[in-house]
Simulated assay, not measured.
Amino acid sequence: MTRTIAFYGSSLLSAYWNGAATYYRGIIRALAKRGYQTTFYEPDVWDRQKNRDIDPPDWARVVVYDGTLEALRRVAAEAATYDIVVKTSGVGFEDDLLLAQVMSAARPGALRVFWDVDAPHTLGEIAAAPDHAIRRWLPDLDMVLTYGGGDPVVAAYRALGARLCAPVYNALDPATHHPVAPEPRFASDLAFLGNRLPDRDARVAEFFARPATLLPENRFILGGNGWHDASFPSNVHKLGHVPTADHNALNCTPRMVLNVARDSMAANGFSPATRVFEAAGAGACLVTDAWEGIELFLTPNEEVLVARDGQDVAEAVRTIAPDRARAIGQAALARVLAHHTYDQRAKQADALFQAHAARLEAAQ
């Protein structure tokens, strides 16, 4: 049975200042294989449309709307024609109003979903704001899905009144992220790819800048938006924004690749970033800062290296030979292909959607 989804998110077409792009693409593409027809509504803000990574795909319809209140209300009204209505966190333009408009427009019987791609951060905002829009809407929503957070996030959302909350974790789309030939411009001992955000600065300084300082003879590369005016040691080469088409080469070429969680995700745990699965899918030797729950996704010291601080990162760069780095990367690739693909995540989401439909039918 074909089911239609109205998906209101930051951007499907552009990863520019949009770390969730890989997640949206993976989930929606995999849901299309299961018979879902998705229309993705994204606002033309933050220069994302000027920095598209992909053309509109054949597995989703994309509607780009102006960053105006009039345009927002117009596309929100279209939610009335869909079986499932999804509003994500972090759309980037009038999020609270968009939530109210699309959920009010959803027809009776439609499945109404808040899909949180930054749950620890969102929950922190809700805790600090008694009148937060999510708090007001939770009793009327059918479910909250998150791309991480585990039991702590589920318990927090349930305590706020969510009827159902379930993590649908980041994963790998092997057709998009996979091993490729190395590219000399990305040659380095350690690479980090991530946009500069206020709640990541201190951790990047510790886990990336400090190792570079400790190892002046090694080469480090840094990709992502916002780092142009940040101070780093001279052995750090800044790439700026790295298009998604270059992510495989960036992951395959360096001896090791670093993941640095945002403060809220590290504190909560159980929140692997999209970069974790992108890197593993390319067979990279991944070094991640320590956070609770990593072993649910990759086995420490066998499929991933876990660092407690910058000194641990420096020690890994200093001691992990290329042969062992390749072995760790291959083990990670095998693990994610077996257990962490978007096809598997879509199967989980489909089961949640079908269970909701069955509950509605039983109640009639």
Rank of each mutant, 00 (worst) to 15 (best):
A133E: 10
A133C: 13
I134G: 09
I134P: 14
R135N: 14
R136K: 09
R136M: 06
W137A: 15
L138T: 12
L138D: 06
P139C: 04
P139N: 01
D140A: 15
L141Y: 10
D142L: 02
D142A: 05
D142T: 02
M143Q: 15
T146M: 10
Y147Q: 13
Y147P: 03
G149F: 06
G149K: 03
D151T: 11
D151P: 04
D151Y: 05
P152Y: 00
P152D: 01
V153Q: 10
V153A: 13
V153K: 09
V154A: 12
A155L: 02
A155I: 00
A155R: 09
A156E: 04
A156Q: 07
Y157L: 11
Y157P: 08
Y157V: 05
R158L: 10
A159F: 04
A159R: 11
L160Q: 14
L160R: 07
A162P: 03
A162F: 01
A162E: 02
A162R: 01
L164Q: 14
A166Q: 15
A166I: 10
A166S: 11
Y169C: 12
Y169I: 07
A171W: 04
L172F: 01
L172Y: 02
D173M: 03
A175F: 12
T176C: 04
H178M: 03
H178C: 03
P179H: 02
P179E: 00
V180G: 11
V180I: 10
A181G: 10
P182H: 13
P182R: 15
P182S: 13
P182I: 14
R185Q: 15
R185T: 05
R185Y: 07
R185W: 01
F186S: 11
F186R: 06
A187K: 14
A187D: 13
S188L: 07
S188N: 11
D189M: 05
L190V: 12
A191F: 07
L193G: 05
L193D: 04
G194E: 14
G194Q: 08
G194H: 09
G194M: 07
G194K: 13
N195T: 14
R196N: 15
L197N: 11
P198R: 08
R200F: 09
R200P: 14
D201I: 00
A202Y: 00
V204C: 02
V204D: 00
A205S: 10
A205W: 04
E206G: 12
E206T: 12
E206Q: 08
